[in-house]
Simulated assay, not measured.
Amino acid sequence: MDTRVIAALALLTVSPFCVAKQDCETIAGASAGAADYLYETAKVKTDSRLHFYSAPYAECRLPAHLINGDSVEVLRSLQYKPSDDAPVHTYRYVRYRDAKGLFATGWVPAEGLAPLPNALPVNETCQQWAQKAMPARVSGAPAADNHFQVQAGGRASFYTMPNEQCRSSSLFLIPGDIVSAQEQSEDDFLEVAYYTADRHVVRGWLKKSQLQPVNSGDSYRDDINPLSTNLATRVATLNLRHDYQCVFYESWNAKKAIEIIVREDHQAPLCRGGADPATSPTTAYISIDKTSGEISWPDVAEGFEEE
């Protein structure tokens, strides 16, 4: 049987999850804000199954799993130490797209992944530009119908950053190719993910003027993780990236929502300046409904409502 079919079947082998459920709920809620954001692609490299976890903790393993050779997008990273005398474990929050185009998301142990080369490496000039200009971009979470098709009229070149100087000379799409938008923006650049026929992933920027919307969007599986925090964790991961911004998140698992505090970051190398590095003032509150995934922004002066 084709390994891709095996992988798809593996994601269907779901059974009730009850071991340490409360601990997993708590850890998942805290991890939704605490995990570092990153983006890379990786290949599953293991002699056995690489299981999904509902939270980055050994007791939170799920039946669903990936197999050797599967390609995933890595979206978050977290080191977890269950106790003072225990070793540190690193987990990655990944997105896997199966042969039918459905996505599964969840935590996996980092040791089961081998990073793949970046198809669109960012040169130093574009990196420096991004560190100064990216915070000024007006962008937001992707719409539900986030699929776009390259229009007729020629190639659509990839850009490593939303800047004319960062155009790739070798990577492009052709009319008819379909991409998944990763954000909405008010300029002509759109960050997208393109999934190749051989299951590889290219993530970069395209010109919106070369794209036309398609009446469809990314679809996710919600049947592999029974925790109530599952949807809110995914929403936080896909919609709250803070690349090139001097902020960090703190979060916890409340009864109805994952609650997140946004704080100024005065510690990161790119964020140092005249501000006191010992302080991290609150700039915003974010609440993500665990049932609907809806994001709300409570007033900073009022904080979160008691549940």
Rank of each mutant, 00 (worst) to 15 (best):
A28L: 06
A254I: 01
G29T: 04
I224H: 11
A268Q: 08
S71Y: 14
Y244S: 03
A152C: 06
T160H: 08
Y39I: 01
L11D: 08
A143N: 12
A257R: 07
F103S: 10
Q184F: 01
T46N: 13
V202H: 11
I260N: 03
T46M: 12
M1C: 05
S287F: 04
K21E: 09
A197F: 07
A130D: 01
S228P: 04
G101N: 02
Q151K: 15
E259A: 05
G29Y: 03
L75E: 06
P269R: 06
E259Q: 15
A28I: 01
G273P: 06
S15Y: 13
N146G: 02
E124N: 12
I67C: 01
L75P: 00
S54C: 09
N253E: 10
A152W: 13
L50K: 05
G106R: 12
Y195V: 03
V88N: 14
M161V: 01
P277D: 09
Q245Y: 05
F148G: 00
P56F: 03
G217Q: 04
Q151A: 12
A133E: 13
D187H: 04
S48A: 12
G112W: 03
R234L: 09
H51Y: 15
A99R: 14
M134V: 09
H89P: 00
Q184Y: 00
A130V: 00
G176F: 09
Q184H: 03
I6W: 12
F304V: 03
S287G: 00
P82L: 05
T279V: 07
S296C: 09
E302G: 04
T279E: 11
T229A: 08
Q22D: 15
E111M: 02
H51R: 11
G29M: 06
P142N: 07
A232R: 02
G153I: 02
K256R: 15
I224C: 02
I178C: 09
E307W: 14
S185W: 04
H147C: 03
